[in-house]
Amino acid sequence: MNRLVQRMKKLKGKGDKAFIAYIMAAEPSWEAVLSIILELERVGVSAVELGVPFSDPIADGPVIQAAANRALARGVTLNEIFDRIGAIREQTDLPILLMGYWNMFLKYGRERCIETAHSAGVDGFIIADLPPEADPVFFQLARDRDVCTVLLAAELTPEDRLKRIIAATSGFLYYVPQAGITGLELKAGEAVEQRIRLIRSLTDTPICIGIGVKTREDAQKLGRYADGVIVGTRIVEFMHNQEGKPDLPQRTARFVAELIP
């Protein structure tokens, strides 16, 4: 079974919530990223989203875009990302997802992408600009290889569209509780709770909330009605501020541990 699906199931069985951390590939270096992944697992992170840097990340705010630019300046490629994940698989079973933009995966080749992901041990994709109807072939290839495709649903997504998204998402549903991009402030409240209740009435797939989750309090509050939270900008920002520190992986892990409810 897919590592992500398995992990989400296990958490649900124990009544625990998922905490998913986003970091950028090769940022500030591959050595740091690989040991950060191991450290994050140690402090209880449930899965890692690894950002695939793209030149035009329209769904990301300035913090993540700047990190992507630094990674690109280092010459990171998708192929290299697959290779590095393949290597780290000898040391960890932590679910790893790739988050990026469709053009890079399309250019790499749909089939090659899924095959390489499968053999490297990538558990799923989050493709910010690939809605469920845009490329049925890719979604089918992923299903055939038991690779998850995590789709986003937004605050204003109408119910008929929610159903289409739910049918194509796997692993979990990435719920964006407000209009906005990564790095914005969170406005959690009753509206979010109602939306989650609506989605729950339509599916058993776990629901994780991302975009705008910045503090332990946010995570705690959202965890009351969702199955987990995703934190990205805060972590990427922290790592950048601490760059150059020899114990960056440990520092990052301690920082993330503080965010986990």
């Binding site: 329209i58 769904a59 469709w102 910010a128 600009d129 690939l130 809605p131 845009a134 789709l151 986003l152 649903a153 937004a154 605050e155 204003l156 997504t157 109408p158 569209r161 998204i165 964006v176 209009a179 906005g180 991009i181």
Partner: peptide
């Protein structure tokens, strides 16, 4: 052509 956009934009396009 098509609509390759983050889901947050989709309701506005529709």
């Amino acid at each position: 052509g098509g609509q390759y956009v983050p889901e947050m934009i989709m309701p506005a396009l529709q």
